[in-house]
């Protein structure tokens, strides 16, 4: 697929829109359909699309493994961090009303960060699973070529 001109050009045209749509779903989740989970999946789908067209190695250069693993863990930490921020500011765990002087703004801020956490974890996990499957196939091929007994 790497040498198909049509696919490469179409992918180049589409991927920015996919990524922007992910951001739209993320930040417009308060007003329309969408939210962290959907945004994370769409973001990951954009990068998976890139990997399908341009090869997993190119995608790995763009979004390296350590970044994916960091994303995977930091999303949960952001979410739990919002909870503990509520505790530190004198509320209950995951109590957003205390995050700002105005309780409504506090709610908005809390929901925003929670959604960011969800999106970060989901996109990290989806990408990691994809990378794992993709690289496993290639590893087997290398072993077949090299050893023969693998």
């Amino acid at each position: 697929m790497r040498h198909d001109l049509v696919l490469r050009v179409v992918a180049k045209l589409l991927i920015p829109f996919i990524l922007v749509f992910a951001l739209y779903v993320q930040f417009h989740g308060d007003f329309g359909p969408g939210g962290g989970f959907q945004a994370g999946v769409i973001l990951a789908a954009g990068i998976v699309f890139y990997a399908l067209i341009y090869g997993v190695d190119t995608a790995r250069k763009l979004v390296p493994d350590w970044l994916v693993e960091t994303l995977l863990a930091s999303g949960v930490l952001i979410y739990a961090g919002v909870g503990f921020a509520g505790l530190l500011l004198g509320g209950n765990f995951l109590d957003y009303f205390v995050l700002d002087h105005d309780p409504i703004h506090g709610q908005h801020r809390g929901i925003f960060w929670v959604e960011v956490g969800v999106a970060v974890t989901v996109s990290g996990v989806m990408l990691k699973i994809f990378y794992m499957f993709a690289s496993r196939g290639r590893l087997d091929e290398e072993q077949d070529k090299g050893g023969g007994d693998a």
Binding site: G29, D30, G35, G36, Y96, I104, Q107, G110, I111, E115
Partner: peptide
């Protein structure tokens, strides 16, 4: 009471 227009997001996140 959280004043988020999308009720699904409000229920889910708050």
């Amino acid at each position: 009471e959280v004043d988020v227009p999308n009720v699904v997001t409000a229920v889910l996140a708050s």
